[in-house]
């Protein structure tokens, strides 16, 4: 799920960045530091959308670095149990398949793939229905439901299922 939230961060800036462009420098450093990182609490920071306010700088003893408290708006992504996600299949094997939605790595075990889909090994391993009408292989886009999540400092892992109504393939790369 995506949230647009306000977060705060203390930014340390070297004095050489002071001057007319102080604000710009702060913001670009903030983007570099924050976008694309994860926190267990908020999830993955997709993008900073605005700066709410930049507090007064405090000079740190002995260094000359100045710390600014910055409040910023950002879009974060955090998966939840029960959430429906669309994801791209990255790897298919007999244990199930792996998929990615942005920074999230999802595993769908063969237990959670509908029983009428069978694993087919070969050059392009895939899960296929007996009539061959639906096929999941690398690069397929699937809609799945999250049933477990773990958000680490740098990675997000999820367990997914497609064993439910309206879940499954939404596009087939081989048909394109």
């Amino acid at each position: 799920m995506f949230f647009h939230i306000v977060l705060e961060r203390n930014m340390q800036l070297h004095p050489r960045h002071f001057g007319r462009n102080l604000r710009e420098n702060l913001v670009s450093k903030l983007m570099k530091d924050v976008e694309g990182t994860c926190s267990g609490r908020h999830g993955f920071v997709v993008a900073i959308t605005g700066i709410e306010n930049i507090g007064k700088g405090l000079i740190r003893d002995g260094t000359g670095f100045v710390t600014f408290p910055v409040k910023y708006q950002c879009v974060v992504f955090r998966p939840f149990k029960g959430e429906i996600l669309e994801a791209v299949v990255t790897m298919v094997n007999k244990m199930g398949f792996f998929a990615e939605a942005g920074p999230v790595q999802i595993f769908v075990s063969n237990h959670l793939i509908p029983d009428d889909m069978e694993f087919q090994s070969g050059d392009v391993p895939n899960y296929t229905t007996s009539d061959g009408s639906v096929k999941i292989q690398k690069d397929s886009e699937v809609r799945l439901k999250i049933i477990g999540t773990r958000v680490d400092a740098t990675e997000i892992f999820c367990i997914g299922t497609i064993k439910d109504d309206f879940l499954g393939v939404i596009n087939d790369p081989s048909a394109a």
Binding site: M95, Q105, F107, S109, H111, G148, R150, F157, C158, I159
Partner: peptide, 15 residues
Amino acid sequence: HPGSFGNMCIICGQR
């Protein structure tokens, strides 16, 4: 809990 991915059960998702 026959197996785990990211320390979560691959079937029920439990930690």
